[in-house]
């Protein structure tokens, strides 16, 4: 039971990290039909910048703000130099070019920060743990991280659903050509969405910093999960990204814990030790396939 609660909490918190990454990805994909594999790079950049700013700019909190902003700006620079030339081109061009960006930036990060994993210290105030239930202490920081994810989700939902800019973003995701014909600068709208998306991914990188090892290529694993999230949630939908991120986070985390145990219990011998993890890593894709079989455009499609 305790294990289950811990894993569920961890899964939810992975979901919040995924949401922060997927939010930008889904809007960029939805509004511009642009497949940005390099979105995970923003997450990595956020984490590395977080390490540097934490060491030289007065600790975790200033680093959280500075690294998010700088990661966002870096995203805008990439958009200006590379990505905007890819709009309207085939997915293959977009995938190849942004994959190139991943490789290049991973190398640049290696040159600047070195290949060995770095650590980002937890902020002082949140490094404790608290009594969650009988026999279970849970780190405050992980709860704070999940809280930050929920806060961002509420903010984004408000902006997207209740403001004029949000209305344009939803309209742009639905029919970009028509919105341009109404006199809306689609390029400007997209830069805004892209910058915010890059910033959120950077923000997620700093938040994850104290929990994971900060190393080159750390963004790619989460990026794949983030793509699963936006496919399940429905491309272009913030609400879909949130729900799907929680689902993917929970299924992935609980699956890894439960299925491995179940396999050990049901089978014996060395095969069981291998079978469990193999099935667990397939779980989210099974969920994705099941969702797509029932709702081919995802749970909350942005395009009606």
């Amino acid at each position: 039971m305790i294990l289950f609660v811990v894993q569920a909490l961890n899964g939810f918190q992975l979901g919040m990290l995924l949401f922060l990454i997927a939010a930008g990805l889904t809007l960029v994909f939805g509004v511009m039909k642009f497949v940005n594999l390099a979105h995970g790079v923003q997450y990595m950049l956020g984490a590395y910048l977080g390490v540097t700013f934490a060491a030289h700019a007065g600790g975790f909190w200033p680093a959280l703000v500075l690294a998010s902003v700088v990661a966002g700006l870096a995203g805008l620079v990439l958009e200006r130099l590379i990505f905007r030339h890819l709009y309207g081109r085939s997915e293959l061009d977009q995938v190849l070019a942004t994959f190139g960006v991943i490789i290049t930036l991973n190398e640049i990060v290696r040159v600047i920060w070195g290949s060995s994993p770095l650590e980002l210290a937890m902020p002082e105030g949140l490094s404790a743990s608290f009594q969650l239930m009988e026999g279970l202490r849970y780190p405050v920081y992980r709860v704070a991280l999940a809280g930050a994810g929920i806060l961002v989700a509420v903010l984004l939902a408000f902006v997207v659903n209740r403001t004029r800019v949000g209305m344009l973003i939803r309209a742009g995701a639905s029919n970009q050509e028509m919105v341009g014909a109404l006199g809306v600068d689609i390029g400007g709208l997209f830069r805004l969405v892209f910058g915010v998306g890059a910033m959120l991914a950077g923000f997620a990188g700093v938040l994850a910093g104290p929990l994971v090892s900060v190393e080159p290529g750390m963004g790619e694993n989460l990026l794949i999960l983030a793509f699963v999230v936006i496919v399940i949630g429905g491309v272009g939908s913030i609400r879909g990204a949130f729900v799907a991120a929680v689902i993917v986070g929970l299924v992935d985390t609980l699956g890894r814990a439960m299925i491995t145990d179940a396999a050990k219990a049901l089978l014996s011998g060395p095969a069981s030790a291998r079978l469990g993890p193999a099935v667990a890593s397939m779980l989210i894709y099974l969920v994705m396939a099941a969702v797509l079989a029932v709702r081919p455009t995802g749970l909350f499609p942005a395009r009606a």
């Binding site: 344009l168 809306v184 400007g188």
Partner: peptide, 14 residues
């Protein structure tokens, strides 16, 4: 939305 687009104030109204 069309009014908004034609008045060019899309980004001032967060």
């Amino acid at each position: 939305l069309a009014v908004q687009g034609s008045h060019g104030s899309a980004f001032r109204f967060v």
